[in-house]
Design a protein around this nucleic acid. Sequence first.
DNA 1: CTTGATATTTAGAATGATTCCAATTCTTGT
DNA 2: ACAAGAATTGGAATCATTCTAAATATCAAG
Lengths: 143, 143
Amino acid sequence: MRLNTTELDRLKTSLKQAGLKPTRQRENVLSILLSRRDHPTVEEVWQRSRTLSRGISLATVYNCLESFVESGLVKQVNYEREPTRYCPNLRPHAHFKDQETGRVYDIDLPNEVLIQLNSILPEGFRPEAIEISFHGRTKTQNS
Amino acid sequence: MRLNTTELDRLKTSLKQAGLKPTRQRENVLSILLSRRDHPTVEEVWQRSRTLSRGISLATVYNCLESFVESGLVKQVNYEREPTRYCPNLRPHAHFKDQETGRVYDIDLPNEVLIQLNSILPEGFRPEAIEISFHGRTKTQNS
DNA sequence: CTTGATATTTAGAATGATTCCAATTCTTGT
DNA sequence: ACAAGAATTGGAATCATTCTAAATATCAAG
Ligand SMILES: [Mn+2]
Ligand SMILES: [Mn+2]
Ligand SMILES: [Zn+2]
Ligand SMILES: [Zn+2]
């Protein structure tokens, strides 16, 4: 789970492009998000950081994720009032939460669906963002 | 803003049909929700209840709204981690939040859109609910 | 109409995710 | 190496919501 030099350079570059100083903590938090795209909560990212050479403070996990969201590197996912989850998938997509396992899946959003969704808005409504969340069950056999 | 006997009987009936004893507090909370469909928060419902003959405790507003949601009389609307809002519109609809005024509008959801949305789910995903929230600006001249 | 069983209301305490604070440590340009 | 600004940190504060246990209200039965 340690990054090789190439991957680390890629991360540093992402961070710099986003206008963020590439600190050890930010590199770790971002690599945690990218390595398992399972929409972890802050607490989960913090737990995972503990397995690295040096852990990260909870406050810093909050700070890192906040700056990633501000700079557009990740997106927040909220279900009801549960702890916020974080998602590094930047393509337009919806979310599906399996209410038995709690797992959150990405659902790709075809452009035609986006267009049709915009078409239901009355005159004068200018959307800046749309959020689509399913919840239900999955009858799949995957892990 | 006081209810006449006919309206009050209608409310009592709704509550009974939902399996809830028709108390003064529940009648008031439900009539507040129905009289202005602007998706108020708990705090706002509580404020509005203060203008009635006798107010209602904040805990009771929470309790009433929770039982309404359980019994399907109203729906919750969440935006990020802001206080939960409540909506008595039972038709399938999306929400649009004007980020300048904070106002939340109902957007009717045509059946064909619902169908198309379900069609983007992979094999084995069984949705029980879907939530669609826009946010942006409105260029309208209405109040 | 009373009564008793059950449900609801209530004030205040507790919870828990998130934000704030002020002190320390790091990053980076010179 | 140094200074200035940025980031990190532990702990306190915030605040929407939930919990608790005591007081009150509802309603079916007699
Ligand atoms: Mn936004
Ligand atoms: Mn649900
Ligand atoms: Zn996602
Ligand atoms: Zn609504």
